[in-house]
Amino acid sequence: MNIFRLAGDMTHLFSVLVLLLKIHTIKSCAGISLKTQELYALVFTTRYLDIFTDFISLYNTVMKLIFLGSSFSIVWYIRRHKIVRRSYDKDQDTFRHYFLVIPCLVLAVFINHKFTFKEVMWTFSLYLEAVAILPQLVLLQRTRNIDNLTGQYVFLLGAYRALYILNWIYRHFTEPHYVHWITWIAGVVQTLLYADFFYYYFQSWKNNEKLQLPA
């Protein structure tokens, strides 16, 4: 475990906590894409199939449980909670899951490290995580009025990926046998998707203005 990896995990954890806190205390999920949240639940489910078979560390197992638990509770809040679900704007959040899920599945079946169920699912989760933010970014662009917590949530998610890249660079030099190009490409694509958002996030921060994405 290096400092970049730990910082990446922590920003990832904070992003989820910020979102849960927003939903739980304000009882609102305005501006949050259910599609993205459902895709994350799918990402964690398919990635952590090894949670009960391969023990890596207590830290690893606990974090996996947190990410699984939080992603499913966020989906539950938006779909089922009697107050929260009223703030969900279904008409704006129209991105189709299968546009992302099917290509990622096909890609994972053909391009993977080893053709086993667990390995294909793990690869699928990497591809899907890379693009799972798209419905959320589309929603941000549509609603334009982005509240602080939603902006911070997306910023923390992007920061997590950027820190993971630094972690891989570090690991590349310290443990060369670990490097795998599938992880790199998926991770870089995922981080690039945030580039536009980051640009406007820093602009609004610098000018002390409310975050707004151009139409």
Binding site: R5, H12, I56, F67, W122, W168, H177, Y178, H180, T183
Partner: peptide, 10 residues
Amino acid sequence: KDQPQGHDEL
């Protein structure tokens, strides 16, 4: 270890 990178990551 012949594990691909990332299996110990989250």
